[in-house]
Design a protein around this nucleic acid. Structure first.
Lengths: 79, 79
DNA sequence: TGTAATTATACCTTAAAGGGTGTAAATTGT
DNA sequence: ACAATTTACACCCTTTAAGGTATAATTACA
């Protein structure tokens, strides 16, 4: 599967980390996930484990939940 | 890690499947994920792969996205 | 109440996610 | 322009998610 830096989670986390003036290393330390994982997250690796993602999201007060797909997303379904 | 049938994703999917009058087997077929996975999903297995979850959520027009944690969630942080 | 359908557990195998580390590339600041 | 910091990529290793299948428990209903 192809990586997609523009996917919702990747974008969200790159943005939040920047705004918090944190490096990937710092975020890795603060959240307890591996540095490698932080990088894969931000580069849009497609297949991630939910609890690892949540471990990072939680640091920013967020969590993964099912939300209705946007028209935008629906349009891109056929990739 | 402990399983939690009441977690957001598990609850959401049990509810949606019921409302669609589908069995786990049917949902498994329709979404292309394994039957075992549907069951683990609905029973709140903690560690899931995001693309598998999305594969099922998409069937119900949803997808995993980072959302602010609720007060409820925040209260339960210390488990 | 008995029986078929649905759901829950258990066991085993396989593919791949996550982690550590080392190195190269890119970014930043002076 | 250069040095230091930060980010990206490659390698190998360990762990485990997901799938298939078989069996037990539960639920639905005739």
């Amino acid at each position: 599967m192809k990586w997609d830096r523009e996917n919702t989670i990747a974008q969200f986390l790159r943005d939040r980390r920047k705004k918090a003036y944190l490096t990937q290393v710092e975020l890795s330390d603060l959240t307890g996930v591996g540095l490698r994982f932080v990088r894969e997250l931000e580069q849009g690796k497609p297949n991630l484990m939910t609890d690892k993602v949540n471990q990072v999201l939680l640091f920013f007060g967020h969590t993964l939940t099912p939300t209705p797909i946007s028209d935008e997303t629906r349009r891109n379904l056929g990739k």
